Computed example of a mutant assay.
Amino acid sequence: MNKYVLFLVGAFFVGVTTTVAQTKMLIKRGHTKSKKFYGASHDKSKGITFSAGLGIASYFGELCETGDCFQESRPQLSLGARYRFNSNISARGEVQWYRIGGRDRRYKNGELVKTDRTNRNLSFRSDNYEVTAAFQIDVLPNTSFYESYDKRRPFNIYGIFGVGVSAYFPETYYMDKTGNNEARWYYLRELQTEGKKYSVFTPILLTGIGARAKVSPSIDVAVEVAYRFTNTDYLDDVSGKNIDKSYFETANIPNDKRHIAAALSDRRPEIGLPALNPGTIRGDNSTKDGYYIIGAKVEYSMPHKKYMGIKKQRMLKKYRRKVPRYR
């Protein structure tokens, strides 16, 4: 995971450095007009871009090691908007739905792949939601200061850095053989499998890189990869140690689910292995969980004339004064 993080952070700072250098070069060559002369309100690169995308998501945690995380990828959808401050820098907001998952027992060509996690026999999936706010910095200036955004470069690379919050809902598939013998999905947070009821929300810090290609004056296509650092180790409901099953007899859990919680806290008996003693290592709480999203999106940039028309209408509406009528 550290290799991915270092790569993304390094790429981000390289992008910022290149942006500053390119901007200075354009000013030196006379390709960028002075903002003091024209005024910031005349910057035609300003405007709004809307986006919709889809991709894949995966995570790093106790049920997904570096070598097999990509194989456990799940779908992702996003909607967003981006405001361009100038030819290089934008602020963007996005809402996303993404699914992550992992399992100890993995199969390849119908055969069990043995690892040091196989006998633990834990698994999960989680349908999550995310809201983020970030800065996007393009490596190269898209236009000169006096040109509208529809004259932008045909291709550009950018860095992303921002913050947000994610809601996560880990669940697992299990057949209750002491009940109706029907397999179903159980929401793990309410079962407190490690004796802890953790928050459904976690703050996140994201960093990533992307590439954008121009399709038409108003439409771009982009591909980006971004990693999210979280403040929780329970994206997969696994973090600490096994607890004594007597805990579930008095825990704040629905009565009809207490035996389910006890069974899901240690799933070795399902595959014919003895239960582990209380205090046995179940997860690794020395590091937090994280996840990444690789996505493709379509972006629509509002034409400059239409954008300025909307701004003008808003200004007129704000400052319009009613003129009294005289007879």
Rank of each mutant, 00 (worst) to 15 (best):
R99T: 08
N142T: 15
P141Q: 09
N242E: 11
T32N: 14
R99Y: 06
S144W: 11
R92E: 15
D244L: 02
Y149L: 15
N88V: 04
K28I: 01
L206T: 11
Y247H: 09
R282A: 13
L191Q: 03
T280N: 08
R282P: 00
R314C: 14
E72D: 13
L191V: 05
S123Y: 10
T280D: 06
P170K: 04
I260N: 02
K197P: 02
G110K: 06
K108V: 11
K24L: 14
E249R: 11
D237N: 15
V221Y: 08
E111M: 08
D233I: 01
Q136K: 03
T18D: 15
T132Y: 01
E182S: 09
Q22P: 00
K108E: 12
I271M: 04
E190V: 03
K35S: 12
L276A: 13
F229V: 01
Y38D: 11
P269I: 04
Y59M: 03
A263C: 01
K288M: 08
C64W: 00
V20K: 08
G283Y: 06
V131F: 07
V113W: 03
K177F: 04
K214N: 12
G47Y: 12
L205S: 07
T66E: 13
A213M: 14
G210P: 03
G55V: 01
V14S: 12
T193K: 05
F50A: 03
K288V: 05
T23H: 10
I281Q: 15
F145C: 03
C69D: 04
V165F: 04
A11K: 00
A251N: 00
Y186P: 03
F248W: 08
V95P: 00
A183I: 09
G240S: 14
Y4T: 13
R105A: 15
G164S: 05
Y186D: 08
D256N: 15
V225Q: 06
K28Y: 08
Y158G: 04
D233C: 08
T193I: 15
V163C: 02
I260Q: 02
G55P: 01
F248T: 05
S265Y: 01
L206K: 08
P324R: 11
Y307W: 09
Q313D: 11
A91N: 00
K36I: 08
V165S: 05
K257M: 12
M175D: 02
S286H: 06
P217R: 07
G195E: 05
G210F: 11
S123V: 00
R105M: 13
I294D: 02
V221R: 02
V323A: 06
A11S: 15
R267H: 01
T250F: 07
Y186K: 06
